[in-house]
Simulated assay, not measured.
Amino acid sequence: MWYVGAQGPRPLGLVGTAASQMRLPAGAAPDGVIAVSVEPPGGSPTGQPTGPVVYTGKLIAD
């Protein structure tokens, strides 16, 4: 899962079968986007999305 803002994508963590929580990075803008990409086991080897993006969603202020 990725946070995508003005500085580009930043990793948030891996999505698995167990429930988990992820926190947005410091300085995350409310106009950013959350994206999910398909990556190899263990996550992206480059720290950037390498596989296809299968979901995006806008952030909603709480």
Rank of each mutant, 00 (worst) to 15 (best):
P30V: 11
T46F: 06
A29N: 10
G32I: 09
P49S: 03
K58E: 05
E39N: 02
A18L: 10
T46L: 07
I34S: 04
Y3M: 08
P49V: 08
A28F: 04
Q48L: 14
G51A: 01
P11Q: 14
V53G: 04
V4S: 11
I60G: 03
V54R: 03
A28Y: 04
P41K: 06
D62W: 11
P49Y: 01
I60V: 15
P41N: 08
D62H: 13
T17E: 09
T56S: 03
V4E: 14
P25E: 09
P45F: 07
V15D: 03
G57D: 09
G8K: 08
A61S: 07
A18P: 00
V15A: 15
Y3P: 04
G57R: 13
G16D: 04
P30K: 10
V33D: 00
A18E: 12
P49E: 07
P41L: 04
S44V: 00
Q7K: 15
P9R: 08
G43C: 10
Q48T: 12
G13V: 12
M22Q: 15
S37F: 02
T50S: 04
A28G: 05
G8Q: 03
W2K: 09
P9S: 01
R23T: 15
S37V: 00
S37A: 14
V53Y: 09
L12C: 13
K58Y: 06
G32F: 02
K58N: 10
Q21G: 11
Q7A: 15
V53K: 11
T50A: 03
L59I: 09
A29D: 14
R10V: 15
V36H: 05
P52K: 13
L24S: 09
G32S: 05
P45T: 08
Y55K: 13
S44I: 00
A6E: 12
T50F: 01
P40Y: 05
S44Y: 01
A6V: 12
V38L: 13
V33M: 10
V4A: 12
P40I: 07
I60Q: 14
T50P: 01
Y3D: 06
G57P: 00
P30L: 12
S44G: 00
A6R: 14
P45C: 07
Y55A: 14
M1V: 13
L14E: 14
A29W: 00
P45A: 06
S44R: 03
A26V: 14
V36T: 09
L59E: 05
V54L: 03
D31R: 11
Q7L: 13
G51N: 04
